[in-house]
């Protein structure tokens, strides 16, 4: 491959690699015969084996800590879901979004898995004495439609994009993921803050 081989060595490039990597357990007869008389090919074979041995030593997986193993096992059991989406930095904003959602009495839609969007509009407290600007009504409708996306073929709500690959339905009482929570926070503040 990278040596000035005598005539014929280059044709054994694949043979050398297949033998060094263990893909071939023994050299083909023609290559075996060549090896006995070619020091360059023997040296190249040794070099490749040396590199592969060093690579194996360098890339052997490290042990995984016991607490990590336990966390993964629990999550795989379904006991902990989407845990990693809750980075400590995001928790305050998620909590704030959840609180805001509670204040405006929308969480009831999490608890009613069988309603259609049309039915849900009837459950939203629409304060009779308050007049909403038209665009704020639109905002409420858009937000609610966003919340009410469902998983395809599922009765569970997906408060994040249905295009998201991480579309595990929420367990009862489980909060939406961080992006949705932030989006909810922005939009509910706007809907609440601009009442005319």
């Amino acid at each position: 491959m990278n040596i000035e081989y005598e005539t014929g060595c280059e044709q054994f490039s694949d043979d050398r690699l297949r033998l060094a990597t263990g893909v071939d357990s023994a050299p083909r007869a023609e290559f075996a015969e060549h090896l006995t008389e070619c020091a360059d090919c023997r040296a190249e074979l040794e070099e490749q084996r040396g590199l592969l041995g060093a690579l194996e030593a360098a890339l052997t997986p490290e042990p995984v800590a016991e607490d990590v193993i336990t966390r993964i096992q629990q999550r795989a059991h379904g006991e902990v879901r989407r845990q990693s989406a809750w980075s400590p930095l995001l928790r305050p904003s998620i909590a704030a979004a959840a609180a805001l959602a509670a204040v405006i009495a929308w969480p009831q839609i999490w608890e009613r898995p069988a309603v259609t969007p049309d039915e849900t509009f009837e459950t939203v407290p629409w304060d009779g004495d308050v007049t909403y600007a038209a665009d704020e009504v639109e905002t409420r409708i858009e937000t609610m439609e966003g919340i009410l996306q469902r998983a395809e073929g599922s009765d569970s709500y997906l408060p994040w994009s249905a295009d998201d690959d991480w579309d595990m339905p929420l367990a009862e009482g489980e909060l939406p993921d961080a992006d949705t929570a932030r989006s909810l926070e922005r939009r509910t503040v706007r809907a609440n803050g601009a009442v005319t």
């Binding site: 990278n2 040596i3 000035e4 040296a43 190249e44 040794e46 070099e47 490749q48 084996r49 040396g50 590199l51 041995g53 060093a54 690579l55 030593a57 360098a58 890339l59």
Partner: peptide, 22 residues
């Protein structure tokens, strides 16, 4: 530029070599 830094016996697979290889 032919190179054979791994030919048997020429370079031990020590910690430093492992780190450089990683």
């Amino acid at each position: 530029h032919p190179a054979r830094p791994f030919a048997s016996g020429t370079v031990p697979a020590d910690d430093e070599q492992i780190e450089r290889l990683q």
